[in-house]
Nucleic acid binder design. Structure first.
Lengths: 319, 319
DNA sequence: CTGAAAGCGCTTACAG
DNA sequence: CTGAAAGCGCTTACAG
């Protein structure tokens, strides 16, 4: 029995008669044998499972991130346990209890961090490593993010290149540091280019995008000629608002959407977008988490791949 | 130690001195104690985890189904392990090996059944119960589905009420029995109402919807005046095709989309849709799975909630 | 009413 | 080079 374990795990490999090894491999194959994960885990204090906390299963915009994470985790031999961190039903606290306190996972990725949540520090100092994905917990040293500032900058520069000088930003909630980095990058680049910026914040939904777009255009002064929108849902809503207002895109107003998505290819007009390396973010989160599990030091990581601009039909030179 | 176990599990409850119980509860509380899931599982041959096999993490249209499933599973004390069954990377076979053969889960829900896949029978006769969600494995007695035929019927009747007699159906791939039931219900109701139907099948993507819509209208005869489309992605593509063709909706052509989604509220025109009880389907799948785990008999189930028509602006009376 | 013992299926020093 | 023993943290008959 111990010999079998050694052979199958490839541990005491060298000191086992080849003929014995052969027999073991054959039997294992024939019997379809796989070590029992729970027993193995109990002995090794390791589970082969990773937890993934999503903000809300209702809004699956982050599915490329999860896919990137799943693929990498699978590749590394880990299984993914998902839990929802919606304030209502399943709370982060309960998820933590079930996953970590009951010893079900080796590490936890949190996609739902909100600034100032006291739980976050509990997570960091808990018995299993954790990482914060996309939405950071500043100072934790456990963050995995993208070049969000560059995304904002890229949008602003594109619009400035098109001679726009009066810009608008339809931002997500500023409690998300991700949103804030984007916002800051946009403003900095706009100002550097001599443009002014007016800002409206809104939840990341269609309706919120609809309402905020109307607010943005319903101004006495500084009505922007080009707008950078925080996500796809908001953009869908904003487009409907513009239609209802009779504002033509891009003739009267240029828009750039943060995050790319197939749907942007099929709306009218096709929407220029900033494409983020979402799959890479998911994979990077798993890499960072596994590195910690394996005892690595660990520090904040930023996915090096730069955001890119997908130039479509919703932006035009100011006339 | 055994007393603690008994008290905390509420098993030998009756025969324990209240004072002892009290002390145990207090200590557990104070120490933040939770039984170790792996050890418990090893002893009880139970894991408290359920597997969920999704067809592809790339296409998250089924996220309401997963959310319904997650919520119910969580409520029942189960944790959800997800795995992808994409032909490419992570195969169903490998997922089965890791989840079932390694004893990680108590039951498996499969959302990715394709007719004629030999693996499906292996699943059914395997060591843990399984259910097929939405896409059935006929004859298995393990199916959990919705009233898809009624969805097709509902769409046809709505169109016939509007005096359309020449209908079209942009269907999904007919290897999916779900798609087929929808298709059959639509055709049966159309014929019963004296209408003719032309059918195009296409993958469930925007591009496929775009192409198929053009094919559907590019006919010598029987050009339909109203079309029932298989899913939201196809509808987005179809709308773009209609724009490019100069076909006005609903003046020239009425369309009904299968499955409802917020985005249909914000496109132009707002699209009439058939709303399916997707959350309920997810919950029902978990209920059926858990019933089997608990030793129940098990048979095919159909979510009783009827599909409903959400009447918006993309359908009009034939002129 | 409560404690001691066995055992779930593994892995890894430790003998031999 | 390979087997016997201990132990991961539980639960549940079984004694007492």
């Amino acid at each position: 029995m111990s010999t079998v374990s050694r052979v199958l795990s490839g541990r005491g490999d060298s000191s086992i008669r080849p003929e014995t090894k052969q027999r073991i491999f054959e039997s294992a194959e024939r019997l379809h044998y796989r070590p029992h994960a729970l027993a193995r885990g109990l002995r090794l204090s390791t589970t082969g499972a990773l937890g993934w906390l999503v903000p809300s299963l209702r809004n699956p915009n982050n599915s490329p991130i999860i896919r990137g994470a799943f693929d990498r985790a699978w590749e590394l031999g880990y299984v993914l346990v998902i839990a929802e961190d919606s304030a209502e039903r399943a709370t982060a606290e309960e998820a933590y209890a079930r996953l970590v306190d009951e010893g079900r996972i080796d590490g936890l990725a949190i996609q739902s961090a909100r600034e100032g949540n006291a739980l976050l520090d509990t997570f960091v100092s808990g018995p299993v490593p954790c990482v914060f994905v996309d939405r950071c917990h500043p100072g934790s040293g456990c963050n995995v993010a993208m070049r969000d500032g560059d995304a904002g900058r890229l949008a602003a520069e594109h619009l400035i290149d098109l001679r726009h000088a009066s810009l608008g930003h339809l931002a997500g909630p500023l409690e998300f540091d991700t949103t804030r980095r984007r916002h800051d990058g946009f403003i900095a680049a706009a100002n550097a280019g001599g443009a002014t910026v007016v800002v409206e914040t809104a939840e990341l939904s269609e309706q919120a995008g609809y309402d905020a777009m109307r607010r943005l255009l319903d101004r006495r002064a500084d009505v922007p000629t080009a707008i950078f929108i925080a996500n796809v849902n908001q953009t869908i809503g904003a487009l409907a608002a513009l239609r209802s207002l009779g504002v033509r895109v891009p003739d009267d107003l240029s828009i750039v959407c943060h995050d790319d998505d197939v749907v942007l290819e099929y709306v009218d007009p096709r929407v220029t977008a900033i494409r983020m390396p979402l799959l890479r973010l998911g994979a990077a989160a798993i890499d960072a988490l596994v590195a910690r599990i394996d005892g690595g030091a660990g520090q904040d990581v930023v996915v090096d791949e730069a955001p890119t601009l997908v130039d479509r039909a919703s932006t035009a030179r100011l006339r």
